[in-house]
Design a protein around this nucleic acid. Structure first.
Lengths: 134, 134
DNA sequence: GCCTGATCTTACGTCAACGTAAAAGTGACG
DNA sequence: CGTCACTTTTACGTTGACGTAAGATCAGGC
C-alpha cells in the first residue's frame, strides 16, 4: 500500500519546504482541500499530489490561478473535452512563452558577456594604475 | 557631429516606445535627469544614452534599483575602483543567475513537453469516444 | 489548574513598476 | 479671446503571492 497517512501542516511544511501561510493561502484559493479535524488541517495523499503539481506548475511559470484551473480539469473525470482541449491550449501557449523567454535570455546572456569583457579590461587597467601609484 | 538636439517627452516616448509616466517615473527614481525648461522636460543626449542602458538592463533582468546603481557607477569618473569592481561583481552574479534560470527553464520546457504527450493521447482518445457517441 | 507550543482566524502590509484619474498650467493657432 | 492639444503635479490603484502581527484556541504534560 502507498502511504495514505494524513499529515499535519508542519509535516507538510518540512516535507515540501513551504510555510504554513502558503498552505493556508492555497487552501483559501481552492488549490488544496485538507480535512478539518476540529480546527486543525489534515493533508491527505490527494493534497500532497496536488501540492506537488502546484510546485511544479510554479516552476513552469504558471500563475496560481492557471494552476487551479489545470488542477480542476485534472480531476474533472472524462466529460467536457472542450475544457481539456483548452487546458492543452494553455499549456501549449505557456510552452511557447517559455521558449521565447529562453531565447531572449540566451541573447541577453551573450550580450552581457560581451559587455563584461569591457569591464574586465577596465578593471585590469585600473589595477595597473593603482599599482603604479603605490 | 552627433545629434545633440534635446527631445520632448513625446519624442522620447515615440522613439523608445515608453509612456510619459515611465519617463517621469525614471526621473523620480533618479535614473534620468532631463533639463527643465519652465515646466517642460527636455531630454538630452545623455538621457537618451541612459535610457538605452536602462532598457537594456531591464532585458537583462536587472531591477531598476540595480540599474540606478550601475548607472551611477558608470558616470563616476575613474576614482573608486572598489565600486567598479563591485559593479562587475553584480553583473557577474546576474550572469550566473541568468544562466541558472535558463537551465531551469530548459528543464521545465522538457518536462512540460513530456507532460503534453500525455494530454495529446488523452485528447485523441476522447475525440474517438466522442465520434463513437455521435 | 497552569504553562507551553502548535495551530487557528482575521486582516493589514509588502514589493516593483508603473497605470490612471483629477485638476491645472502652457503654447500655438485661428 | 477661446480652445485644443499637450504637458505638468499629486496621489491613489493595481497585480500576485504571500509576510506578518495580534489574538484566540486547543492538546499535552507537570
Amino acid at each position: 500500500m502507498t502511504d495514505d497517512r494524513t499529515m499535519t501542516i508542519r509535516e507538510m511544511c518540512d516535507t515540501y519546504d513551504v510555510t504554513p501561510r502558503t498552505l493556508r493561502f492555497y487552501e483559501a484559493k481552492e488549490l488544496l482541500f485538507p480535512i478539518r479535524e476540529g480546527q486543525k488541517r489534515l493533508f491527505t495523499k490527494r493534497d500532497r499530489a496536488r501540492l506537488k503539481l502546484i510546485l511544479r506548475g510554479k516552476r513552469f511559470g504558471f500563475s496560481l490561478e492557471e494552476i487551479r484551473q489545470l488542477l480542476d480539469l485534472y480531476h474533472m473525470g472524462d466529460q467536457q473535452q472542450t475544457q481539456l482541449a483548452r487546458t492543452y491550449e494553455i499549456a501549449q501557449q505557456r510552452l511557447t512563452d517559455m521558449e521565447t523567454q529562453r531565447d531572449e535570455l540566451n541573447q541577453a546572456i551573450d550580450e552581457l558577456k560581451e559587455q563584461m569583457r569591457w569591464g574586465e579590461k577596465m578593471l585590469a587597467s585600473m589595477d595597473q594604475s593603482k599599482r603604479a601609484a603605490e
